[in-house]
Computed example of a mutant assay.
Amino acid sequence: MNVKERIKKFIDTEGLSISAFEKSIHTSNGYINSISKNIGIDKLNLIIEKYPNLNLEWLITGKGSMYKTALLTPLSEKYKSLMPKVVVVDDQDTERIPLVPIRAQAGYLTGYDDTTFISQLPTYSLPNMQNGTYRMFQVSGLSMYPTLQDSSYVVGKFVDDWHNLSSNRVCVVVTLSEGIIVKRVTNTLDKYGTLYCKSDNRDYPHISVPLEEIQEIWECKMHLSFEFLDPVTNYQKIAALEADVAYLKESLKKLEL
């Protein structure tokens, strides 16, 4: 691969579009595709400044790994030390499930390990939620629609082993820069030092979250919703699309005659 191809591979790994990447390094649309064989030092500085974990040697020569190896060193260490910071129990030492509603999620980013903050959250007991520590989060937005509806709830089990986190699972990821996000994850932590978080709703972008941004991961085990989706709507859309295709076929036949 040449430099342009490696940049495109990095963009794809980060879950970005080419235009979003160009905007992030303050270049005009079409810049990446205009690169021939080499790239100017000024543009390299912009890229490294914006993406400090990118391995400059790999970008220029193709040698080594895409990301700086220093990023991977604390990964194994962090795997070993993961444990819930606060666990809530009742008078009978039965574990309770705290609810983090939308209005409390900004505070949770700094209070997730604060006993006082967690104790102020409402708590619940739910069936079949044993053998683990659980937390309930309210969903905000439509990025996971129709899998999850806006203002519905998910119950997540604390993930204490990020190394073996299964891909294609819906998780609540507590991050420093993106806040609390609910996404379908692909585990690329070992490979790239990032967690690739996908939206089920294709109108919303995917997010690649660096390891150092992640504070907690909760694998969703239950979904609570007050909305009953009407499948007729989807069927109607398919039927309308089939009618449009049939009409176009008939129109083409008439033109051929």
Rank of each mutant, 00 (worst) to 15 (best):
D91Q: 14
D91F: 15
Q92P: 03
T94I: 15
R96I: 08
R96W: 08
R96K: 15
R96N: 12
I97P: 09
I97A: 10
I97K: 10
I97Y: 15
V100N: 04
V100H: 04
R103F: 05
R103Q: 11
A104C: 12
A106L: 14
A106V: 14
G107A: 07
Y108N: 04
L109T: 06
G111H: 08
G111I: 05
G111V: 03
D114Q: 11
D114I: 13
T115Y: 10
T116P: 00
T116N: 14
S119E: 12
Q120W: 00
Q120G: 13
L121G: 09
P122I: 07
P122Q: 09
T123E: 10
S125W: 03
L126R: 14
L126G: 04
Q130G: 00
N131E: 10
R135M: 12
R135I: 02
M136W: 10
Q138G: 06
S140P: 01
L142F: 04
L142C: 04
S143L: 00
Y145P: 07
P146I: 07
T147C: 00
T147V: 11
L148P: 04
D150M: 01
S151Y: 03
S152P: 03
V155I: 13
V155R: 00
G156F: 09
V159C: 12
V159R: 07
D160T: 15
D161W: 09
H163K: 13
H163Y: 13
H163V: 05
N164T: 15
L165W: 09
S167W: 05
N168W: 12
R169H: 13
R169N: 14
V170W: 03
C171G: 07
C171I: 03
C171L: 08
V172C: 07
V173D: 01
V173E: 06
T175C: 08
T175A: 02
T175R: 02
L176G: 11
S177K: 14
S177G: 09
G179C: 04
V182T: 07
V182P: 00
V182Q: 02
K183V: 01
K183Q: 01
R184E: 04
V185A: 08
V185L: 07
N187P: 07
D190I: 03
Y192P: 01
Y192F: 11
G193N: 00
T194M: 10
Y196G: 00
K198L: 07
K198W: 02
K198M: 12
D200T: 08
D200L: 06
D200P: 04
N201C: 04
D203G: 14
D203N: 13
P205Q: 08
H206L: 02
H206Q: 12
I207P: 01
P210F: 05
E212L: 11
E213T: 06
E213A: 13
E213Y: 01
I214S: 09
I214M: 11
I214H: 03
